[in-house]
Design a protein around this nucleic acid. Structure first.
Lengths: 125, 125
DNA sequence: GTGGTAAGTTAGTGTTGACTAACCGAAGAT
DNA sequence: ATCTTCGGTTAGTCAACACTAACTTACCAC
């Protein structure tokens, strides 16, 4: 069973926030994604129950091993896709937005082919 | 108000089917998309009410001017995106599937930049 | 005309994933 | 000590979009 698109997105956001600000609470995700506290709260409950995150008694969120793996995978896709779009001349904001949507729906195969392509382009230069 | 992703998809399918088989009925869309008759029926009702299609007394579906415009736009995106992916080495089926998802969510800007890129690549050869 | 099949419709259901309203506990400020 | 604010939770709602069940109509065969 594949992970839901929204779940992937939450995990990625937790990953990004941890790298940016260190410790991550629900409210940080609320601010980052512009969702409401209840929405994030419910989502965190599901991620807890599915074993993707741990939440300590102070509300601090950490990724489990599985959660970390998913988050990194999505983040890698995000970086590659937005980098690719930026290289084509798309502005940073739009590239990030588009990458954020595409990263969840693109097939492994297409992702890898884009990866190959980007690598080749870099080597060329 | 932007058109729903599913609506875009239905319009594109009608466009494709008309080019392939001439006249299009609900059941043709059912077969093409592997949805159920009720699902398509309800979707067609909405597209009728929103002025994107006309349905004659025999159940034959045609695109209105607006519907045609949307359908062509999406189809153009689809062609470009799947062509691009295929050029990168993605197999036809996967490329079509991915294009079908990406075409609805990508920004105008990114689409245009990919278009520029593809054009440049063609010129090169 | 009775029966079968094809095509469309209506009504109701389930899932995903957001929302608001309202409540609770902890921590600071006065 | 009370009051506010912050962060989190629960419960209920809503929209999109598919589904099944069941009805209708028309047409074809015999």
């Amino acid at each position: 069973m594949d992970l839901q698109e929204s779940a992937e997105n939450y995990l990625e956001t937790i990953f990004i926030l941890r790298n940016r600000i260190g410790a991550v609470r629900s409210v940080d995700i609320v601010n980052e994604l512009d969702f409401t506290r209840p929405s994030v709260s419910v989502a965190m409950k599901k991620l807890r129950e599915s074993g993707h995150i741990n939440v300590d008694s102070d509300g601090y969120i950490t990724l489990t091993e599985i959660g970390q793996k998913v988050a990194e995978e999505i983040y890698e896709r995000h970086s590659l896709l937005s980098g690719f779009l930026i290289a084509l001349g798309v502005d940073k904001t739009t590239a990030a937005e588009d990458a954020c949507r595409i990263e969840h729906i693109i097939s492994k195969q297409s992702f890898e082919k884009i990866q190959d392509f980007v690598q080749k382009e870099f080597e060329k230069k």
